[in-house]
């Protein structure tokens, strides 16, 4: 069987590559934001905010590529699903970039103020959320629906940890009323990390749709 759509295949490959480049930037942004928090590195935090435009540009580029493919190639079947999946996944990846910016902003607000208590569970939760993002991208690249489906369970772990952390932080608020601002920012950061997990789950849903042609709600 010969392939009569080489140009179209090249365009689909380029779309996938663009998404993977965009993902790398978002992953790095999240990694850097968490490192900035841990190391109180305000310069790094500011750099994340400044560089977010690159991630946004990638999203725009993917948008344009998809519009061109839809208009010129009228994809059907798995080609159509792949094109739509990339468009939707790029939206989640862009939101992850925004969450990195949000974490960086919180780091800047906390500033050089010493943390009232080293909170070990935040990096633990962050590690799981980062792992979810890596797995989601691996599942996309390898079209692995089993790995994608498993992420729903991991997201439940993140949600549980988030609940416990918020409870702990609220208790700290009563103990350290003078540090309300810092504790509030830490609550926000926990929320942003928890949202990274949700976006990874959304990506998984789109991978399953791309491969199987069916939508499953993994966030339920």
């Amino acid at each position: 069987m010969s392939n009569v759509r080489k140009t179209f295949d090249a365009e689909l490959d380029r779309l996938k590559e663009t998404l993977l480049e965009m993902v790398k930037l978002s992953q790095n942004a999240i990694d850097d934001a968490l490192r900035a928090l841990k190391e109180t590195d305000l310069e790094k935090a500011q750099a994340i905010i400044d560089n977010d435009i690159q991630i946004n540009n990638y999203e725009e580029s993917i948008n344009n590529q998809v519009v061109k493919i839809l208009a010129q190639q009228q994809p059907v079947a798995s080609d159509l699903r792949r094109t739509i999946a990339v468009l939707k996944i790029s939206n989640d990846v862009e939101r992850i970039g925004d969450l990195a910016v949000n974490i960086a902003k919180s780091v800047l607000i906390i500033g050089n103020e010493e943390l009232i208590k080293p909170i070990e569970d935040i990096p633990k939760m962050a590690k799981i959320a980062q792992g979810m993002l890596s797995d989601a991208i691996k599942a996309f690249y390898e079209e692995d629906v089993i790995l994608a489906g498993d992420l729903a369970k991991v997201d439940d772990q993140v949600d549980d940890m988030y609940g416990k952390l918020i409870k702990e932080l609220l208790e700290l608020m009563t103990k350290y009323p003078n540090s309300l601002s810092q504790i509030t920012q830490l609550c926000f950061i926990c929320r942003y990390i928890e949202r990274v997990g949700d976006h990874a789950t959304n990506i998984s849903e789109n991978i399953i749709y791309m491969v199987k042609g069916k939508m499953f709600d993994l966030n339920a």
């Binding site: 069987m1 010969s2 392939n3 009569v4 759509r5 179209f8 994809p75 059907v76 079947a77 798995s78 080609d79 159509l80 699903r81 042609g213 069916k214």
Partner: peptide
């Protein structure tokens, strides 16, 4: 048929990978 065909031959034909 055009979003999720069941048969590989249908998929190959409608996506233009059938020469």
């Amino acid at each position: 048929l055009f979003s999720n065909p069941k048969d590989k031959r249908t998929e190959d034909y409608i996506t233009g990978r059938f020469g």
